[in-house]
Simulated assay, not measured.
Amino acid sequence: MPLLKADLAACQGYANCVIAAPDTYDLDDDGVVVLLKTEITDEDLPRVREAARSCPASALTIEDT
């Protein structure tokens, strides 16, 4: 199952990921990404991968396990 990771130091709070996949990403009070889940199902993978790609800071990665 693919594993979602976030580089919290790189996150700039653009929220592109939240807009694209609000069930997977959120922002905390400081505007830093919060991962609502880290294991991604095959069904959700295309949408979550596209949301990660939309990050201008490249703070999100998906690792195939």
Rank of each mutant, 00 (worst) to 15 (best):
I40G: 02
P46T: 03
L27V: 07
P46F: 08
Y25R: 05
T65N: 15
V32Y: 13
A57I: 02
R47M: 12
R49W: 08
N16P: 05
S54Y: 10
R53A: 14
C17W: 00
D23W: 14
D26Q: 08
Y25N: 06
A57V: 00
I62Q: 00
C55K: 01
L3M: 14
D44A: 09
N16Y: 10
V32R: 09
L45I: 03
R47V: 13
V48L: 07
L35Y: 06
R53Y: 11
L36K: 13
I62H: 02
A52D: 05
L60W: 00
D42E: 15
T65A: 15
K5S: 10
E39F: 06
T24L: 08
D64R: 07
P22L: 14
L45W: 05
G13S: 10
D26N: 07
Y25V: 03
L8P: 07
A15M: 09
A10V: 13
A59G: 06
D30K: 15
A9C: 10
G13C: 06
D42Q: 15
V48D: 00
R53L: 12
T61R: 03
Y25S: 04
I19V: 14
I19W: 15
D7S: 09
T61C: 01
M1P: 10
Y14V: 04
Y25T: 05
D64F: 13
I62R: 03
D42K: 09
E39L: 10
D7Y: 10
S58F: 13
A10S: 14
V33M: 04
P2V: 00
V34P: 02
A57S: 13
I62E: 01
T38C: 09
I40L: 04
L36I: 11
D28Y: 06
L35K: 02
C11H: 01
P46E: 11
K5H: 08
C11V: 05
